[in-house]
Each structure stands twice: as C-alpha cells, then as structure tokens.
Simulated assay, not measured.
Amino acid sequence: MKINSLTTNGYSTIFEAQVNLLSRENGKKEIICIARELSKKMSQGSLLASDISQKTISAALQATKGIPDPELVLLFGQAQSLSGFIPWQVRLTEIMSLSSHHNLYFREFLDILEMYSCCEQRFGK
C-alpha cells in the first residue's frame, strides 16, 4: 500500500506500510518446539546455556521470518495484555487499544495510523 513519497536532493523515497494480522496463537507452538530442541541439545552437551540468546531464538523462529518487529500493535477487547508477544519484538512498539475489531471502519483505521504518525519515540530519553 503506497502511503506517501518524498523527494530530497533528486532522490525519491516511497513510504510503504506493511500490515500483518496475527493472533495470540501465531508462533506459540514454534517457541515450545525451539525450547525443547535447545534443552535437548544442552542435555546432550552440544550446546551451552551461554550460547542461547535473543538472536539464537529469533533466528530459529519461522513464524515471524520476513516480518519486521512491529512498530504499531492494535489490541482489541477488554483485556489489555501483551500475552503472546515476544518481549524483544515489542520493546519499541507503540501500542493502541480498541474496544473491538467488529465494525471497524477504514476511516477509523486511518485515524489510528494518523495518531501513530504523530508519536515521537524517545528511546528512554
């Protein structure tokens, strides 16, 4: 979806938005399988605990391959929880809540994107 373009010093940049719809079940089974595989390798002595890192687990995850870390997450419903999200993937994510996904109009979605575009990330400053 082409959102906007910008021309600076004769170079044109096209900004695009990637929308991914994920549920709480995406990746859960995979994380369990990875944990089992890593613990098996540790018990066999072919892997040390110090070898396991965020990068190791991220590289092993297939469900999120090709999907960048989210910049915006929309939570739907009464429960305000990040249960099911991998902490390092949402550390810089802007999180917005909506009461329901039912009858969500395109204009409302665009309003949310506009609100997000006004957010300023300060990275702890």
Score class of each variant (00 low, 15 high):
21 L>K: 08
75 L>C: 14
6 L>W: 12
105 Y>Q: 15
54 Q>Y: 07
32 I>L: 08
111 D>W: 06
92 L>R: 06
94 E>D: 02
101 H>I: 04
111 D>V: 07
61 L>G: 00
8 T>S: 14
50 S>C: 04
4 N>K: 15
80 Q>M: 13
50 S>E: 13
49 A>E: 11
58 S>R: 09
104 L>W: 02
119 C>Y: 04
125 K>A: 10
61 L>Q: 01
73 V>I: 15
21 L>P: 04
116 Y>V: 03
104 L>Q: 03
89 Q>G: 08
36 R>G: 08
53 S>V: 03
122 R>S: 00
62 Q>C: 07
40 K>C: 10
18 Q>P: 02
103 N>E: 09
87 P>V: 04
109 F>S: 09
120 E>M: 02
59 A>Y: 10
92 L>G: 00
14 I>K: 14
63 A>I: 00
112 I>Y: 01
51 D>W: 03
65 K>M: 03
9 N>F: 02
21 L>Q: 11
11 Y>W: 10
38 L>D: 06
66 G>T: 03
115 M>S: 15
83 S>C: 13
93 T>Y: 04
29 K>T: 12
8 T>M: 12
108 E>S: 15
59 A>S: 14
22 L>C: 02
44 Q>L: 13
85 F>R: 12
107 R>E: 15
12 S>K: 14
125 K>P: 01
112 I>T: 08
8 T>G: 08
20 N>E: 11
11 Y>T: 12
114 E>C: 10
35 A>E: 10
102 H>E: 03
35 A>G: 13
7 T>S: 15
121 Q>E: 06
105 Y>P: 10
87 P>G: 06
104 L>A: 08
93 T>Q: 06
35 A>C: 12
22 L>E: 01
115 M>Y: 06
47 L>R: 10
37 E>N: 12
58 S>C: 07
28 K>T: 14
8 T>R: 15
58 S>M: 09
93 T>K: 04
13 T>Q: 15
36 R>A: 09
16 E>D: 12
40 K>T: 13
47 L>M: 13
114 E>Q: 14
70 P>Y: 08
21 L>C: 14
98 L>Y: 01
86 I>A: 10
8 T>V: 15
117 S>Y: 06
72 L>P: 00
114 E>A: 10
14 I>H: 13
4 N>L: 13
42 M>V: 08
26 N>M: 09
36 R>S: 08
84 G>P: 05
96 M>R: 10
19 V>L: 09
8 T>K: 13
33 C>H: 06
